[in-house]
Every structure is written in structure tokens, then in C-alpha cells.
Amino acid sequence: MNLHITNETSRLRAVVLGTAESIGPIPTLEEAYDPKSKEHIKAGTYPKEEDMVKEMEAVASVLKKYDVQVYRPKLIEDYNQIFTRDIAFVIEDKFIKSNILPDRDQEIDAIEHVINQIDPAKVINLPEDAHIEGGDVMPMGDHIFVGTYKGADYKDFITARTNLKAVEALQKIFPEKKVVSFSLKKSNTVAKDNALHLDCCFQPVGKDKAILYKEGFLIEEEYQWLVDFFGSANIYNITRDEMYQMNSNIFSISEDVVISEKGFTRLNTWLRSQGITVEEVPYAEISKQEGLLRCSTLPLIRD
């Protein structure tokens, strides 16, 4: 397999889509990785497996409609394998394994059948102390955008997933690119104040547009850098509630086609006004785990 990913919006050809089958029992509050999941566990509204399976199959149908090669993880009984974006990511022709929460390391083994099709020299393991998840990493041509948390209390936040060691490691792997890091707001307890990953508060879309949530960034100058990069006329700003509903976590099949949650009325209307075809799917149940469409896809090849 010849990997090729240089941005978020070029025509998608191959992707790993997670699976919601056999995700196991509802986690306890102690087992939950994020504040939004904890909210739904407490409220008794944690998503049912059968509903999430239907939502993911709706995405699989859209991908197949656009002739995208779709890989799925091998099933591990009673194990959550929805969010494949966390476990690895591709930049250029390199497949980089994430260093993620220890409880989740079986997930990468479940896509071994995909990794085995890649030149072993292109499969990269980062240093053990470089913590990173794919939701924090966005290739953008000559740039790589990375969400991170730089505070001395990093270890106190289960929601802090990417550290500065990982940012430095990416710069060494891709010396010809400019790696730009963004400090994200973190909260273990309040979902509306937590940018779990960069794609929870920012995502490029179309040819030159971006979805952005200002309050997800700890440092205003870093938010402003993105506004200047895209141009303020090309920015679609989302509200705190829209961030909570994961409006920035849609998924591009091409510059002209995106998959989006059917309930994102304001966003979907804006996307269509930009000449983008919106393939609407139900994904509100999966979003209860603080992840949406980008989180559950791992692109391998784009034109």
C-alpha cells in the first residue's frame, strides 16, 4: 500500500473506519476517559451499542458510495474500537503509531492486517515519552498543525493527550515542514470547557476554509495565527454548544464533499453555501463519547 496524506481535504481513496460492535459494558465513572462520557454515564444516557453500530454503518455506506476503500479493525470482544483516529495517523507516506492511554493499546493490534500492507520502513514508533493521538495532528501542505497541552500539570489531565515531546519528535521526522503547536483548554470534569483534541475546536474544510472555536485555545495569539493563516473571511466560528456537539469534527471525502451529523443545521447550511456537498448521517449517539466523524476515521490515501 502506497500511503499518501498531505492535508485534510484532498480526495479520499482509502481509510480505516472504526467499529462499534462488541464495545463491552457501559464503563464506570473511573473508567471513562473524558468528561462528556462521564456526563452520560451519570445521566443514564450513555449510548447503546446497537445505535452506534447503525451510525457507523451509515458512514461506511457513504464512503462506499464515493468508491473509498474501507478497512475495519478486527473485532476484539468487549472492547471499544470506535475511534481509530486516536491510535495512528499518516503524514506523507509515513504511518505513525500513537502513544495513547495504556488501557487502549490493543486497538493498534486490531489493524495489524492493514499495517502489514505498508512498507515496514514507513511505519514509525515514537519515543515512549512522546505522548500523541491522531485527533491532535493535522497535516496542511508545508505545515503540520498539532494540538497540545504545555502546562506543568499535564499529568493531572486525562484529557491532555499530546505533549511537547511529541511535537518535537514530529519536527525531527519531518524537518522540511513547519510544525505549529496550539495549546488547548483542558478539563477533566466540564465537557464544554474541554478541547480533547485539536479537531474538537478546529478543522480545515473545502479548498481554503476552516471551522474554528476560539475558546478551545488557551492562548489567543495561537487562535489568531489560524485566523490569519486562513483569512477571517474563510473562518466559520462555532459556539460553545456547537463545540460540545462536535461541529468541528466532520470528515472530508474531498474538497467538495463532507460527511456531517444531520443535526448540525447551521453548519451544514453554511457548508452548502460554500458549494460543498453535505452527506448527512446520524452520529449523535457516538458524539456522547466526545468524538465524532473525524475521530472514527484514519485516512490512509488521499489524492
Rank of each mutant, 00 (worst) to 15 (best):
E31G: 13
Y154C: 13
T189I: 13
F202A: 02
D156L: 01
A284Y: 11
E8W: 07
M1K: 04
Y149A: 02
D228Q: 13
D256V: 07
G18H: 07
V16C: 06
M140S: 09
E261F: 04
S37K: 14
S181E: 15
N247T: 04
V227L: 12
V16F: 05
F182G: 01
K42H: 06
H143S: 04
F230T: 06
I259V: 14
L298R: 07
N188T: 09
F89G: 06
L218A: 14
S287L: 05
F83V: 11
V179C: 05
Q69V: 11
R72C: 02
P120I: 11
I144M: 06
M246E: 08
W225Y: 15
S22F: 09
S296A: 14
F157P: 04
K207V: 12
V146G: 08
D103H: 14
R302W: 13
D142G: 07
S22C: 02
A169T: 12
Q203A: 08
L271K: 08
E242T: 11
K36N: 07
A43D: 15
Q117T: 03
D241C: 08
T162W: 07
E220N: 13
K262M: 11
R13D: 11
A233K: 14
S183F: 10
E222P: 14
P120D: 01
D78E: 11
N237R: 08
S22A: 09
D303C: 10
K178T: 04
F145H: 01
W225M: 12
S61G: 04
E222A: 12
L293D: 01
P102W: 02
E107Q: 14
D142L: 02
D256W: 02
S252N: 05
K150H: 10
K209G: 07
L212R: 10
A233L: 15
L184H: 00
P127E: 06
E92W: 02
Q171T: 11
M56N: 00
C295K: 09
A233V: 09
H40S: 15
E279G: 06
E221W: 12
S232V: 10
F95T: 09
P35W: 05
D105V: 14
L12N: 09
C201S: 11
K94N: 05
I253E: 10
N234T: 11
Y79P: 11
N249D: 08
K214L: 06
S22R: 03
I23T: 09
E168V: 09
R272I: 03
I124F: 02
V281F: 08
